[in-house]
Measured scan of single mutants.
Amino acid sequence: MLSDEDFKAVFGMTRSAFANLPLWKQQNLKKEKGLF
């Protein structure tokens, strides 16, 4: 599990902003970052 700081560094957004994205968009971002 990423820390909040690492999460923001990897995804360029906060966890709450990420959580507001549609599920497909979350999955695409995870795949792009190799976290899926």
Rank of each mutant, 00 (worst) to 15 (best):
S16Y: 11
S3M: 05
D6S: 08
N28V: 13
N28P: 01
D6L: 09
D4I: 03
E5C: 04
K30C: 11
K8E: 15
Q26P: 00
L23Q: 10
N20D: 13
S16F: 11
L29T: 03
K8F: 15
E32R: 08
V10G: 01
F7P: 00
P22K: 01
L35W: 15
F36D: 14
N20P: 01
S16C: 15
V10Y: 10
K33H: 14
N28S: 14
P22S: 04
M1Y: 12
K30A: 15
E5A: 12
L35G: 09
F36G: 11
M13R: 01
F7K: 01
V10F: 11
G34W: 08
M1F: 14
G34P: 05
L2A: 06
P22H: 02
W24V: 05
K33A: 15
N20W: 04
N28D: 14
R15S: 07
A19W: 08
K8W: 13
M13K: 01
S16W: 11
L21F: 03
A17S: 07
K8D: 07
G12L: 03
F11W: 05
S16V: 13
Q26G: 00
K31V: 12
A19L: 14
W24Y: 08
A17R: 05
K31L: 10
F36M: 13
A19V: 06
T14K: 02
K25Y: 08
Q26V: 02
F18H: 00
F36V: 13
S16P: 08
N20F: 05
A9S: 11
F11I: 04
K31R: 13
M13V: 06
A17Y: 05
A19Y: 14
V10N: 04
L35A: 07
D4Y: 04
Q27N: 14
Q27R: 13
G12P: 00
L35C: 08
M1S: 12
N28W: 15
N28H: 12
E32G: 06
F18S: 00
M1H: 13
L2D: 07
E32Q: 08
F11M: 09
K33W: 06
F18R: 00
S16A: 14
P22A: 03
V10H: 08
Q26Y: 01
Q26L: 03
A19M: 13
W24R: 04
S16Q: 14
F36E: 12
T14P: 06
L29Y: 05
G34H: 09
K33N: 09
T14L: 03
L23I: 11
K8P: 04
E5I: 08
M1V: 13
T14G: 05
V10Q: 07
S3Q: 05
L29K: 02
F36W: 15
L2G: 05
S3D: 10
A9L: 11
Q27D: 13
K25H: 11
L35F: 15
G12A: 03
M13Q: 01
K33P: 04
K30M: 15
T14A: 06
Q26H: 01
A9R: 13
G34S: 07
K25W: 07
L2V: 06
E5T: 08
G12R: 03
L23T: 10
K8A: 14
N20T: 13
K30S: 11
K25I: 12
D6Q: 12
K33M: 13
D6T: 07
A19G: 10
L21N: 00
A19N: 14
M13W: 03
G12D: 05
F7W: 06
L2S: 04
L29I: 10
P22M: 02
D4T: 02
L29A: 03
K30N: 09
T14I: 03
F18N: 00
L23N: 06
F18L: 02
E32S: 08
Q27H: 13
A9Y: 07
K31Y: 12
F36A: 13
K30Q: 14
A19S: 10
F7M: 02
L2W: 11
R15D: 03
F18Q: 00
Q27E: 15
A17N: 05
F36Q: 10
P22L: 03
Q27Y: 13
R15M: 10
E32M: 07
F36H: 11
K8T: 09
M13C: 04
D4K: 02
N20A: 15
W24P: 04
L2E: 08
S16K: 12
W24G: 04
D6E: 14
D4W: 04
E5Q: 09
K8Q: 12
K33F: 11
M13D: 01
L2K: 05
D6Y: 09
T14Q: 03
K31C: 08
A9I: 12
G34D: 09
V10A: 07
G34F: 09
V10R: 06
K25V: 14
L23M: 12
E5D: 12
L21P: 01
Q26S: 01
K30I: 15
L2C: 05
T14F: 02
E32L: 08
G34I: 07
F11D: 00
L29D: 01
F36I: 14
G12Q: 05
K30H: 08
K30L: 15
F18K: 00
E32F: 05
L35N: 11
M1W: 14
F36K: 10
S16T: 11
A17V: 08
F11T: 03
W24K: 04
L2R: 05
F36T: 14
F11R: 00
A17H: 08
E32A: 10
F11K: 00
K31S: 10
S3L: 05
V10S: 04
F36S: 09
W24T: 05
R15H: 07
L35D: 09
L2Y: 08
A17F: 05
Q26R: 06
G12Y: 03
W24N: 06
F7R: 00
L29F: 03
L23K: 09
A9D: 08
L35I: 13
L21V: 02
D4Q: 03
K25T: 11
D6W: 14
K25R: 11
L23E: 10
L23Y: 13
L2H: 05
G12K: 04
K8I: 14
L29E: 02
W24H: 07
F11G: 00
L21R: 00
V10T: 09
L21H: 00
R15E: 06
Q26A: 02
F7Y: 06
E5L: 10
G12E: 04
Q27V: 12
L21Q: 02
F18A: 00
D4E: 10
A17G: 03
M1P: 13
T14E: 08
L21E: 03
N20R: 13
W24S: 07
L23P: 13
L23R: 10
F36N: 11
F11H: 02
E5S: 08
K31D: 08
E5F: 06
N28T: 13
E32P: 03
S16D: 13
W24F: 05
L29N: 01
S3G: 07
K8V: 14
M1R: 09
L21D: 00
L35M: 14
L23A: 10
L21I: 03
V10C: 07
S16L: 13
K30E: 14
A9E: 11
D4H: 04
F7Q: 00
A9G: 06
Q27K: 09
K33I: 13
K30F: 15
T14D: 12
D4N: 05
R15F: 07
N20G: 09
K25F: 09
L2M: 12
L23H: 10
E5G: 06
S3H: 04
T14M: 02
M13N: 01
A9Q: 09
F36P: 07
A19P: 01
R15I: 10
E5P: 05
S3A: 07
K25P: 02
M1D: 13
E5N: 07
L21M: 06
N20E: 14
F11P: 00
